[in-house]
């Protein structure tokens, strides 16, 4: 894939991934076939900032976990009232990382 296109993609979507994954993503995108660009450029990634806000406001109900696609963990969190509050606190600090990892899993489908 064209390096300029890849850099543009990284610039606009870099915040959705872990900083230590960026270089790896860039290298693998450059090696990727040009035909994948259309799918890649239209892929929607979850915003870590949005999930942290949801986690702060409705973390006790597991909405943040539902949002990033962890339905099982979301149900578990909902039924245990946010793990008696402890899980809610943990997720305030972990949900952004979890969101970025989910985005990484999503992009790996194309790489």
């Amino acid at each position: 894939m064209d390096a300029q296109k890849v850099d543009m993609f990284i610039m606009s979507n870099g915040k959705f991934f872990e900083s230590h994954h960026i270089n790896d993503i860039r290298e693998r995108l450059i090696a990727l076939d040009e035909s994948k660009w259309a799918i890649l450029s239209t892929t929607q990634f979850k915003d870590p900032t949005t999930t942290i806000i949801v986690s702060l406001l409705a973390g006790g109900l597991g909405i943040d976990r539902f949002m990033i696609g962890d339905t099982g963990l979301g149900v578990g969190k909902l039924l245990t009232c946010g793990g008696m509050g402890i899980w809610t606190i943990i997720d305030w600090f972990m949900i952004q990382k979890a969101t970025r990892e989910k985005n990484m899993q999503k992009i790996q489908q194309f790489l």
């Binding site: 230590h20 402890i86 606190i89 943990i90 990382k97 970025r100």
Partner: peptide, 29 residues
């Protein structure tokens, strides 16, 4: 370490502080 690594590592300490405050007086939380 990268930006997000430093953030996650720092969060482990911050989270333990918040848990101490929330869990008081129970020492297990």
């Amino acid at each position: 370490p990268g930006e997000h690594e430093a953030e996650a590592a720092s969060n482990s300490y911050l989270m333990s502080l918040i848990a101490i405050i929330v869990g008081l007086p129970l020492p297990i939380v």
